[in-house]
Amino acid sequence: MSTSEISLRPAQETDVWVLSAIHIAAIKALPPTFYTQKELLAWRNYLDNPDGSNILKSMKLETCRVAIKGDVVIGFASFIVDELIGLYVHPKYQGKGIGRALVQHFCDEAIDQGIDKVFTTASLYAEGFYLRLGFTAIQRAPHYLRSGVVVPVTKMSKILAIVPT
């Protein structure tokens, strides 16, 4: 599959259940390398089945883009102005450039708004991915999940090249 087979569009309310399913599947696919099983379970909000209302507690549809192959949603990114809040790709489609396309879209949106630096909070699993996309690590920090469980993450930033018009 090439990224030319993928399109991005704004998320819609009808997407929330599949977004929740992707979130759960992506976390379930992670090995307990950096986080314990208890932490991974808390990260997916103790869910085994999708809950669309739950995912809307952590993101707004207006600032969420979904990646689609054909008519199937296979990944999504949520952002607020200069911060990428969440990025998830279904495990079946990981490693195929979808995450990269979603991050590039976020960066392009920021550039269009005149923003020259963006931020994200990366899980320890995703740190290398963001480094390959030009982000730099700022610091390790605690991240407080809704359940109260605290996990280590890496605060990261990327300077964007704004082309003068």
Rank of each mutant, 00 (worst) to 15 (best):
L41Q: 13
L41N: 14
W43S: 02
W43L: 05
Y46V: 02
Y46S: 04
L47H: 12
D51F: 01
G52E: 08
S53L: 13
I55R: 12
L56M: 14
L56Q: 15
K57F: 07
M59A: 11
L61M: 07
L61R: 07
L61C: 05
E62V: 01
E62I: 01
E62L: 08
C64L: 14
R65Y: 14
R65N: 13
K69L: 14
G70M: 09
V72L: 12
V72H: 08
V73I: 13
V73F: 08
G75D: 09
A77P: 02
A77M: 06
A77C: 15
S78M: 04
F79N: 10
F79E: 10
E83L: 06
E83H: 15
I85Y: 08
L87S: 07
L87G: 04
Y88S: 08
V89L: 05
V89T: 05
H90C: 06
H90N: 13
H90V: 04
P91I: 01
P91L: 09
Y93W: 15
Q94S: 06
G95C: 04
G95L: 11
G95K: 11
K96M: 15
I98V: 15
A101T: 00
A101N: 00
V103N: 09
V103W: 10
V103K: 05
Q104A: 01
H105M: 09
F106M: 15
C107P: 00
C107G: 01
D108Y: 05
A110T: 03
I111N: 03
I111V: 14
D112W: 09
Q113A: 08
D116W: 11
K117W: 07
K117N: 08
V118F: 05
V118C: 07
F119V: 03
T120S: 14
T121G: 06
T121R: 11
T121Q: 10
A122D: 05
S123P: 02
L124S: 03
A126E: 03
G128K: 10
G128C: 00
Y130G: 01
Y130D: 01
Y130M: 09
L131P: 00
L131I: 14
R132M: 11
L133M: 11
G134F: 03
G134N: 03
F135S: 08
T136I: 13
T136N: 11
A137Q: 14
I138A: 12
I138E: 10
R140V: 01
R140Q: 14
R140E: 13
P142V: 04
